[in-house]
């Protein structure tokens, strides 16, 4: 039977109060938002905390807004909020589509984007996409606010640059300029993604204006950027250029054998999903 150990529950009503609690409790306190990852880990006894700080009552941490060429997503915004946000659908449709396919509806209704990043479970969908989109994580702490690119925030499996006295307050995603598209393709053999590949690039006809951003998620402990230089100025139908990038993706990852597949298979899938993501961004009707 899965049970929780006793803990104290703090429910600050403002970001300032939440930060005071963070500073006071340090690593004895866990930040709690949707709980979809944290409560599971607590129930299984993988993690144990004396304090949970519920940040859902901090109004500063919720909502999706357009701010100066970016979309600012409050850390406690749920996947379901993002899936249904008209603003996101208009400005970042690929992220909205990704959010529609995160886990299941119950997890989307409770789980938050900030929690997803801060928990840093490697087999997650959003980090690869946010990396490709050049998104930044906004962190608040005693010393003030700082921003880090997502790829500098996620350091490894369950490991981030978040300080014990800090909170993730928002994810800031630049709105891609006109002509730039993004897509995310994934394959899941079990519950979580086995391989997820995000691509962002400027496409005219079937040609990439510059090298697209290609990021492989869920295979390694953190999202990895693939060198897609061979596709700069190349058509997606240029098999040599395409396969060079696919090969680069395969070479880049360092998968491990686990229940979702062997390292060999995951390396192979990384190539397949990378190719399909690149084809999909040019031709959204291509098979996934």
């Amino acid at each position: 039977m899965l049970i929780l150990s006793d803990f104290r529950l703090h429910r600050p009503a403002s970001l300032a109060d939440a930060l005071l609690l963070r500073a006071e409790l340090g690593d004895e306190g866990a930040v709690y938002a949707g709980g979809t990852e944290l409560l599971l880990a607590l129930k299984m006894g993988v993690l144990e905390y004396e304090h949970l700080i519920d940040i859902k009552r901090c109004p500063e941490l919720r909502g999706v807004q357009q701010v100066d060429g970016t979309v600012r997503i409050g850390a406690a915004t749920t996947h379901r909020d993002l899936e249904t946000s008209p603003l996101l659908a208009r400005l970042l449709p690929a992220l909205a589509e990704l959010e529609r396919h995160v886990a299941n509806i119950r997890v989307r209704a409770a789980g938050t984007i900030g929690g997803n990043l801060a928990f840093a479970e490697p087999h997650a969908d959003p980090p690869a996409m946010l990396t490709a989109l050049d998104a930044r994580v906004e962190l608040a702490g005693p010393a003030g606010v700082r921003e880090l690119p997502v790829e500098d925030f996620v350091l490894g499996a369950y490991e981030t640059a978040l300080g014990d006295d800090e909170l993730v307050t928002a994810v800031v995603v630049p709105v891609p300029p006109a002509g730039v598209r993004a897509t995310y393709r994934k394959l899941a053999t079990l519950e979580r993604p086995t391989v997820g590949v995000a691509v962002m690039g400027e496409v005219a006809g079937d040609t990439f204006a510059t090298a697209p951003a290609v990021v492989v998620g869920a295979v390694d402990e953190r999202p990895l950027r693939v060198d897609a230089t061979p596709l700069a100025g190349a058509s997606v139908r240029d098999r040599d250029a395409l396969e060079a990038v696919v090969e680069a993706a395969r070479d880049l990852v360092d998968p491990v054998d686990d229940l979702s597949g062997s390292a060999d298979y995951k390396r192979h899938l990384t190539g397949v999903v990378t190719r399909r993501a690149l084809e999909h961004i040019v031709d959204p009707g291509s098979p996934s």
């Binding site: 053999t189 597949g261 062997s262 298979y265 192979h268």
Partner: peptide, 8 residues
């Protein structure tokens, strides 16, 4: 017939 087994 997991995906990996079929692929192999």
């Amino acid at each position: 017939l997991t995906p990996e087994r079929v692929w192999r």
